[in-house]
Design a protein around this nucleic acid. Sequence first.
DNA 1: TCAAAAGTGTTCTAGCTACACCCATGG
DNA 2: CCATGGGTGTAGCTAGAACACTTTTGA
Lengths: 233, 233
Amino acid sequence: MPDVTSERTETDHEVLAAVLQIRSETLQVLLWQRAQQPDRGRWALPGGLLGHDEDVQTSMLRQLEDKVDVREVAHIEQLGVFSEPRRVPGIRLVATTFLGLVPCDADPTVPEDTRWHPVAELPPTAFDHAEIVRDARDRLRAKLSYTNLGFALAPQEFTISELRELYVSALGHPVSATNLQRVLARRGVLVPTGEVAPPGPTGGRPAALFRFAERRLRVTDASAVLRPPNVGD
Amino acid sequence: MPDVTSERTETDHEVLAAVLQIRSETLQVLLWQRAQQPDRGRWALPGGLLGHDEDVQTSMLRQLEDKVDVREVAHIEQLGVFSEPRRVPGIRLVATTFLGLVPCDADPTVPEDTRWHPVAELPPTAFDHAEIVRDARDRLRAKLSYTNLGFALAPQEFTISELRELYVSALGHPVSATNLQRVLARRGVLVPTGEVAPPGPTGGRPAALFRFAERRLRVTDASAVLRPPNVGD
DNA sequence: TCAAAAGTGTTCTAGCTACACCCATGG
DNA sequence: CCATGGGTGTAGCTAGAACACTTTTGA
């Protein structure tokens, strides 16, 4: 409530992003190595303190500019608030966390202290950042199934095989190219460009190129069972 | 990041809950009427400032104790952060928001300045609270379809007709009792108690009583299309 | 002509909808 | 016996899984 008393209740507030990208057929997250105590040498998510005159998402994008070109971030969304009082030793710091996604064909230049790490085998991480990365991965996996979120991992144009590789890397389990193609086509998520990609050195039929019909998040799986009746009318 | 400089960056941080309940076959939200400026006379969500030594959810439950007996809150979850710099006039105040659900058979005593209001026709609300209520309603509607979240709206035991009424009120569209029964039974969400409810004054076959198999949130709709193969094995 | 890669056709099944029909009660 | 509300049986539909088969290329 806005009735702020004289009692001191302010807290520092940071924003943190788990920026994910498929690199070398592996789901990776952008981390930087802390040079100072506490948790010196451990790897941390990019972020920083919330400024006076910005909302959390604006702040997050601003902070990411230092680490990765923001134009490369195809999608960003809030994950949740981490606010355990002792999550960072020494000070009280509340974190609003984000999931960010970078298409696999982008190769942003990142600072010296910054590196991509496979989400499946994280190095020692600072504070509660490993949990945040897990949450981000789980959110991505869930949304790949019932939304068009693949657009944020894929390049502008791609073949079905390439898209399949991305889904396999993100989901961590086999995906059939045949069915992926049909499911996404039926839902109107993919549209053919009409072009084909040249075959590889070992030959094979040239693959048709596709792009995502929309590059903004949309829920595509209507199979929520308690939806309104007669939707088809 | 925990490298807090001498520069002043602290912000006040509040927690706000949209507490929803089905009352008189209508989805309603608990609001209190502001007695002070700003936005005096307008209706606001219950909440308050985050304390020094509590996480946001603990704080939220503590603040709700004043407005509604916490034991009545069957489910609570984070909705998101609202942080637009001028969302509250005069001060910078970041809000972590929650969705809370109260079973329809609970009738918590609420303070003088507090009242339930239909979500569909809100009175003039303070600040950005109407948007928060909308988000809460949308979250509830979505999760009713693919989780067992109904447990948080329903009493311990109920007939299928009663449950159907709750779903209709929350979703805002017709729901077939026949199919509701079968879907929830197939998913193992409902279990029959073996008892029956006495028929009403106009007769009719007595209805079987059910309860929710679990009273903690569980995702029950496996129809995420890109799930691992051979789940049935 | 063969291997490799891409794409299509077809069958099978699970889960949901719709609707007819049967059941148990009060009057 | 009938009206009322509750519950079940069943047929049809749709989306997805699995897999065989065809198409198009390079060598």
